[in-house]
Design a binder for these strands. Sequence first.
DNA 1: TTATGGATTTCGTGG
DNA 2: CCACGAAGTCCATAA
Lengths: 217, 217
Amino acid sequence: MGLKDICSLDAFVLYGTFSVIYSGRAESELDRGQYMIIRKVDGTLLVHGSTNITPRNYQGPGSKLSVIGNSIISCNKKGESLTIVVHRITQIFKPIAWSSNKIKLSKSERDLVNKIVAEMDKYIPNAVFISKEHQTRVGSIDIYVVDINEQEHVIEAKRAKASLATGSQVSRYLGAFPKAIGYVMSPSISKNAAIWCQEHDIKYVRVEHQDPESNGV
Amino acid sequence: MGLKDICSLDAFVLYGTFSVIYSGRAESELDRGQYMIIRKVDGTLLVHGSTNITPRNYQGPGSKLSVIGNSIISCNKKGESLTIVVHRITQIFKPIAWSSNKIKLSKSERDLVNKIVAEMDKYIPNAVFISKEHQTRVGSIDIYVVDINEQEHVIEAKRAKASLATGSQVSRYLGAFPKAIGYVMSPSISKNAAIWCQEHDIKYVRVEHQDPESNGV
DNA sequence: TTATGGATTTCGTGG
DNA sequence: CCACGAAGTCCATAA
């Protein structure tokens, strides 16, 4: 089976000896070695080494393959190219009826935002206006609240640990809503971020994905 | 070849019908379907669907496999688990002498920082002190410069397009260096970020990875 | 170990 | 198509 035949397949996996050159947003070289090449049905191309979750080289959905000599060349619309020099192919495998299902995830930030909104009394009593993903010129605010005293509140939620960048984000929102009170709400926060928030009058509120419910009943 | 035998291998690829459950930082379910399971020599485990660069589910380096009934269970040190229910295995493949080479990359942010420093005269004349990755309590500043007039300069470099977050980052640094002049240096910047920077007295300087050299000579 | 920020981030969503 | 921010981000690096 020739290289051109292989590359005309919807999807395939190659194992063998290759070297890889990438040119586009950046430039990279991958020394000759044994790698796994994966071509997916959406036009994704992956070069996997023996370690790590992320591929050594890749090209995203929609890339087109061509064969020149003993090289596979993948191009995308932005003019980026991935050149795989084929030295030797040890294994070829053709995936059949490969599923495109996506995972169903919970405990995402969206879930946390919904939980905070549902329990808003606990954090901001007497809210009269609550807006999620509140669009502004300085970005989208996770939760924007106005209470009965017309006090504004700007909340940034993080599903995991809040960082300095999280604090900066709230600070940027406060620049556009100078009378608002800023909050970071998350299960945890880095030490420096906690200090920084305190210094900038941003309140930190610990929130969990699920309530610490009924432990000892 | 039994499931336990397979899972005792350093590395393997399975293709077949599986369903996957993840529990850890978050929770997820992947419906029964045909996927590619990749086990790497460093303990990485991947579940790839037919689209996208990123795997549907994964576990990073160092995860341990065990087999219970017809399920493969991968656990890591943080108590996260990935359960792959094996309905049917169509293909097994064992990668031999899989290379661990890493790519050599250029045009990274580090390269851009070095270029800016090398040409500092063009941007900030009469610099007497230049520090890369300047550590502060509010984070690491890409380039910190003091000129002959004791004026401080704080530069954030971006290898690609600068965003609002980039501006926020500089603003955070300026909070700790209130007398400094702030800069964003990158090949491009989003419109809102450009406006925001201007409003906050942060200078935007366009820099290219390579000089627009000798075009018409 | 934690903390911090880059990344060819990738990916989804909304304008 | 751009813009923006989440992500089980991942990953390297420094403290």
